[in-house]
Design a protein around this nucleic acid. Structure first.
Lengths: 112, 112
DNA sequence: TTTATTGTCAACCATTTGGTTAAGTATTGC
DNA sequence: GCAATACTTAACCAAATGGTTGACAATAAA
């Protein structure tokens, strides 16, 4: 059962280890969005974005709802809308605090 | 300059996306440690652990100090010993909060 | 000086990743 | 019915990952 948690963490961190996917998350943090609209900013095929979204789905970070031919992605589903703000907090946390951490460690590294 | 931050984030998340490396971090959070001692719990060659440690070093999460033939790894360097506790906080954060998030999203997924 | 210990490095291997193109599936609109 | 729209899927590809083995380097101990 530790294994279960572990593999989910693997999936989450792996999902976050790609700048395109982090950008998708950042985009979805503002509002739910269709696939094509999500893909628009990227110099990449729709198929590639489709794959990225599946990775995010696999990690549980993105949920898809299908209406007709339109797939809408959001960072969580209806019953958990409150969690979205929470995720944005983490996104800030990751981008700012972690960056500060890494910078500090690197600076320290040059000092040694 | 966003790119710089981005690639460092890539490195950090990628480093964390492997259970062996997370275990190494958890181990180092308790105390600095030599490579062999670090490798002991794992059913893996020393060379493999050596590679993992280099990944952690590349992400700035682990710093190595060499004394004779012994390489000692720690989660940060001397001038930043205070940061170690900080890192452990993040480790707890990641393992518990993120796991809760993922679990919640997955539960929600089955509900939809 | 010889031997054991600590660890790296290089070469190799199978698998995964991240991208492409091309074709296919639904749905929508004319 | 036919064409456009919104996506997925499959097949492929180069590069990265995560592991192995085996040879090497450097230090410590005998």
């Amino acid at each position: 059962m530790v294994n279960n948690k572990s593999t989910q963490l693997d999936a989450v961190f792996h999902a976050l280890a790609d700048p395109t996917r982090r950008a998708i998350i950042a985009r979805l943090a503002q509002a739910p969005c269709g696939i094509s609209e999500l893909a628009a900013p990227f110099d990449m095929t729709l198929a590639a974005i489709s794959k990225h979204i599946k990775v995010l789905e696999g990690a549980g970070l993105v949920v898809r709802s299908i209406e007709g031919r339109n797939h809408t992605c959001q960072l969580d589903t209806g019953p958990m809308l409150g969690g979205m703000e929470w995720l944005r907090h983490y996104e800030n946390f990751w981008n700012q605090r972690l960056d500060a951490l890494v910078t500090a460690l690197n600076t320290d590294d040059t000092t040694a």
